[in-house]
Structure formats: C-alpha cells, structure tokens
Design a protein around this nucleic acid. Structure first.
Lengths: 230, 230
DNA sequence: CGAGGGTAGATTGTATCCAGAAATGCCGCG
DNA sequence: CGCGGCATTTCTGGATACAATCTACCCTCG
C-alpha cells in the first residue's frame, strides 16, 4: 500500500536507526496482533515490495523474528508464522508462575514513589484500554506492567527470559480477551498487587501474583484447547 | 559456489544446508571456545574474506548470534563479543538451580534403557575428555548431558530456556576447568545422578542435581569474581 | 601549545543482480 | 482415468556494487 516514493521521511513515524530494525518491529507487531496468523507463509518479495524496500532488510528482519521464535525459517522454503501448541502455552504459564513471584519479592523492596506512580498509571491505562476495547493496547500494557513489577529484582537474565515469556503470552491472551470476561478480575488483581507491595506485604503480593498468573493460565488454556479441538 | 578454489571444503567439514548456518555455527563455537574474547570487535569484511564468502551470510550469522546473546550489534558500529558480568553468571546459575531439578523429576520417570545407555556414554566421554584435557569437548558433553537428563520432561519452552542457560554457562565454565580441580566431583555427581534415577530415587536425584549446580555456581562465581577484581 | 572543525578512510547498511533449489503444472504412459 | 517423470516457474540464498554513516587523523585557529 501507500507507495512511499520518499526515502528521507525516516520510515514514516518509525524513526528507527536502521530499516531492518523498523521492519522487524513492524512485522513483530503484526504477528502479535494476529494480522499474520500462525501457518501463514511470509514471502520476502511481497514484504519488500509492500515496504518499498529491498529484500535484504526483510531477510534480516525474518532472521531476528526467527530468533525470537515468532517465525520458523526452513532453508529454501521460506518463513512461516509459528503457532503455540497447548503444551507450550501451559509450559509458558508454569514458568511464569515459577519465576515471577520470587522476582517480585526481590524487586518490591526497592520500589520508590516514582515506581508506584508508574505502576498505577499502567493499571489505569489498562482499565481504560479495556473499556475502549483496545485489545492490542492491552497486551503491551500488560507486558509493561509485569516487567515493571520485576524491574528492580536485579536479575538481568531472569528478566530477559520473563520478557520473552510475556511476549509469547501476549498473542494467545488476546484471544482470551475477546472471548472471556475475566479481564476485570485481572485488572483488579493488578491493582491489588501494587497495593500489597506499597503496604509492605510483599509475600502476600508475590502469592497474589502467582494466583493471578494461574488464573490467566486456566482460562486461557481452556479457551485454547476448545479452539483447537473445535 | 563457483569461484573460490574449493567450494565444498569452504566451511571445513561442516556440510550445513546453508552457508549462513555454517558460519553461525563456526562463529558460535569460536566464541564459546574463547578464540573471540569478550570485547573483540568482529568485522564483517574480515570474516567474509576468511571464509571465502560474501558479507551477506556473515551478517545473517551475526544477527543470529546477537539473538543468542553472544554478540551485540550496534548500528553502524559493528558487532562486539559480549561478556557475562558476575551478576549475570549468578543469575544464570540460580535459574538453573530453580528450573532443572523439577524438570528432572518429570523426565526421569520416562527414561528407557536406551536413555540410560546414552547418559552413561556421555558420562564416560566426559571423564575421558577430562583426562585428555579436551576442554572444549567437555563443554559440549556437559551441555548434552544436562539436556539429555531433561529430555523427556515434555516442556518445550523450559528445555529451550535451559539450553540457552547451559550455553552461556559453557563459556565461563571453561575458565573454571583450567583453574580449579573440582571437575572430578562434577563427573562423580553426574554418574551418581544417573544411578539414582535408575534406582527409582527420583527425588534424591533431583536434589543432587540442584546441589550439583550449586557446587558449580559457587566455585565458578568465586573464580569469576577473582578474575574480574584482579 | 591545545582545542575545534573538516576531510579522508574505513566500515556498515541497502539495492540490484545472478544462481540454485523447491513447488507447480503439464504431458505422456500404463 | 490415474500416476509418474519432466519442464517451467517461482522463490529463496548468495554475490557484487553503491550509498550512508561513523571514526580517526590532520590541519587550522585561538
């Protein structure tokens, strides 16, 4: 679409440093948004023409996406968008249950007033996005919230892993949003976790976080299983 | 592949499907072996000339390595080999302590006689590599052993994460090998873990695995800290 | 003599082009 | 009428060439 025909405009509003990075981000968003469903084959030529660029940045973007696990590249056969099996979804949520609560316990002790303000603004935006029905917005806010909760845990590798898990949760979670109605509970739990941290009840906050993840897991797995069997 | 002298032996005996994959593997091995030390800048042109290929596969290889966390690419400034800080090493071992034992408990119940044979052959090769002083061989064997222990846990994402953790342990662990002498204990612990599994004492095996990882962690962190302060 | 700017070199990022492999369709044969 | 081999066609992988950017050195000016 939108035949660019203008090299200087700095890749529209994406003022990324390189075209590769911009394409990577764009494709990532589109995959997470479901515009590219699992199983879809991404052809380099078509994408390059659509972006108005050469195939080289597209190939590098696909390489990065493969490393993130969003696509799978088979030699000489191209890149296909990956889907998550029920087992993978269960595994991801189990890992989150196992990893996030102890990290929260470490992180919560170092929260400053600015951190609490930021967390509250995220929960507020979360509720607003819910009412406005902005599903894609919600996913990004949820991920930011959970990562912000653990920000001060000072465990770089753990945070990197959790960040990847959250990204992979993001896709199927949007299915849940459209189908299920327990997003208000999630919102309430988010708010309560922050309140417990601020009250110094860190262990209770960690327990609630675990329960929060478990809640999301059960409803999501149920929906996911239903979608795959029906 | 037409021009350069000898097409097939270009990437030694690595008969990978694509040149990119071959270069990726070769560079990965060299970084893990310490041939490319942290902080070293990898220049695309030099690598391309050395391999007798163009820069394109080199770029794609560097992209993949960046995704694996082995190098860091800064736009217009090239790729530098990353090093692990003491905090990262501690974090990685803590994650292994947390993740591997429960996975072993799940996996051990499904071990077949063939699995035990394979595990024993790995521990045997491990000891042989120790005596022969083949440090690089040891790293690969150690990683294979730990992954084989968890192979039947049926947790795809967990295994993928642990695999990454093991790879990152590999580099600093080789420092430990040259300096410390407690590799025999590691070998003994490996053997004992397998024996406990075979005896059906799965919980004991999981406990020993955790202790095994903790042992490696304390000696490695000590050496690592010493190397970084001195 | 030191600091700032400018130019030249090197290095990365991107586009265009060619070769090889895989999928597809067609034709001939059983 | 169905199946297998073969040619075409399409797509990806790689090489070469060009443009943009950063770095480093040197020259000039205060």
């Amino acid at each position: 679409m939108s035949a660019p025909a203008s090299p200087p405009p700095a890749t529209d509003r994406l003022r990324h440093k390189t075209v590769s990075a911009a394409v990577t981000e764009s494709l990532r968003q589109r995959i997470l948004n479901g515009e590219f469903a699992p199983g879809i084959q991404l052809r380099q030529d078509a994408l390059a023409e659509e972006f108005g660029i050469s195939r080289i940045p597209v190939r590098e973007a696909l390489l990065q996406l493969e490393a993130q696990g969003l696509v799978r590249i088979v030699p000489h056969r191209g890149a296909v968008v990956t889907g998550l099996s029920v087992e993978e979804v269960e595994d991801i949520f189990r890992l989150r249950e196992q990893l996030e609560p102890p990290l929260l316990a470490l992180s919560a002790r170092r929260f400053s007033e600015a951190d609490y303000r930021r967390l509250r603004s995220l929960t507020d935006g979360y509720g607003a996005a819910l009412e406005a029905g902005q599903v894609d917005r919600w996913g990004e806010l949820n991920r930011s919230f959970h990562l912000d909760l653990l920000r001060h845990a000072d465990r770089p590798r753990s945070l990197s892993i959790v960040s990847g898990l959250l990204q992979d949760c993001d896709r199927p979670t949007r299915l849940q949003l459209s189908a299920s109605g327990d997003t208000e509970r999630a919102d309430h739990e988010h708010t309560q976790i922050v309140a417990l941290c601020e009250a110094g009840r860190i262990n209770d906050a960690a327990d609630l976080l675990q329960a929060h993840i478990a809640h999301a897991a059960v409803s999501l797995v149920a929906i996911y299983r239903q979608a795959h069997t029906g």
